[in-house]
Design a protein around this nucleic acid. Structure first.
Lengths: 224, 224
DNA sequence: TCAAAAGTGTTCCTGTTACACCCATGA
DNA sequence: TCATGGGTGTAACAGGAACACTTTTGA
């Protein structure tokens, strides 16, 4: 049993949000540039202490909304990071969460708390504060695994999308190219998307059919 | 950002340990029977507050050792449970961990803190305190998934075991029978165990060859 | 009419599943 | 010698991988 009684333990509980999107053919994570010492001008995941009456998931939703304005996206708990010295300001454990957002719907606005906010490709990250390098690494592994057996990509795409765009999302996250015909065959069998009947015109080639996801909630499927 | 400053947040951090084993052809979890109100005589996972200078994993190892005497077993973080009202005594978040132990090496001893300690089949649980019913449910799902693509069963078996015993562990956890020849073919291809050259005599039938795991650390393989 | 991406089926191959009999021992 | 679980290979099948040409549009 713990030596400490409930009254003497003094640990703070925070949430960090790894918010991912696909931008310019790359998997990107949202980072904020910090103002305060000892991490002045360093990049980090957005986060903060939780409030007394909220869950960590609610806190993550709050942080997501503050950063991107979005609310109805895929969000899950990643894991808890709790090395005693991870925060130089004191003992703070962080329950990291992952969110997937469609790039189109986000317009980033810097606020007074941060020096800057921007998307960074996960393959070209700047040095990160705290243990956030590891958080991002585990996030990417989790998502890479999870897109293979669930429908969570719905949260990375706009409401209507083409099959080629859908395939690109898988290719970017998995880091490998996929066969077009096999991919379409697989997607068709899964019944997780439906044709809208519309087409995307305006490019100098054959227009592509537009699709939507049937469910914007977690479904287990075998995609890849 | 949180309304609360670091100085005002008052949340305690605990660890609960879901310790699993295979006993009498069933997947079992170790539960303790509590003494104190409001959960007097109720069953719960062993756990407790973490100490200021330890990680939640270290705390889970400590709890595991106190409960079973074991140290070198498979242990991983499951997830964090943090509903504000999960503990009637106040705001306590719990970082649940899962451990897998070989039944043979454990001899349970009740101590003064608990009314009783015993193994319970996960399919026949008593009412549980806190949110522990859900913790056990998620634990079982995690292990069921994870034995299919890793070598973690090493932690459920004694040092030397027969192929039939190994197969039984998979069958019990997955809840389905497996074909003996196909199972052995698969196991042989994975190279995760090696023959000891010894055999188990003493039963009224052909003696079975004994095997050991090569690595007692996490390895990714496709078992089933 | 040309360039560019969209769209579409079939064959081959590999890996998974199904299945039955002999062996070694203790009683 | 009998009962019991241990140990072994092959054939059929299904699912995954590889692959090329026609269509539709805007310029």
């Amino acid at each position: 049993m713990a030596k400490y009684h409930a009254s003497t333990q003094n640990i703070k509980v925070a949430v960090d949000a790894a918010i991912l999107t696909i931008r310019e053919d790359e998997l990107c994570v949202l980072l904020i540039q910090m103002k305060k010492a000892p991490f002045e001008a360093q990049w980090a995941l957005p986060g903060g202490l939780i409030e007394e009456d909220e869950t960590t998931e609610t806190a993550a939703q709050r942080i997501l909304k503050e950063s991107t304005g979005l609310t109805q996206v895929y969000l899950e708990q990643l894991m808890t990071f709790d090395e005693p010295d991870r925060d130089p300001a004191g003992r703070v454990i962080s329950v990291a969460h992952v969110a997937l957002v469609p790039d189109e719907k986000v317009s980033l606005t810097t606020n007074e708390k941060y020096m800057d906010v921007r998307w960074w490709p996960v393959s070209k990250l700047p040095p990160l504060a705290y243990d956030h390098k590891q958080v991002v690494k585990i996030t990417v592994e989790r998502i890479k695994t999870k897109i293979q057996y669930t429908n969570i990509v719905w949260s990375l795409l706009p409401k209507e999308f083409t099959l080629t765009e859908l395939q690109r999302v898988y290719e970017i996250i998995l880091g490998e190219t996929l066969d077009k015909r096999n991919f379409r065959k697989r997607i068709a069998e899964l019944h997780m998307i439906k044709a809208t009947g519309k087409k995307r015109y305006g490019q100098a080639h054959r227009p592509a059919a537009l699709y939507r996801f049937k469910d914007k909630k977690l479904v287990f499927v075998q995609v890849v």
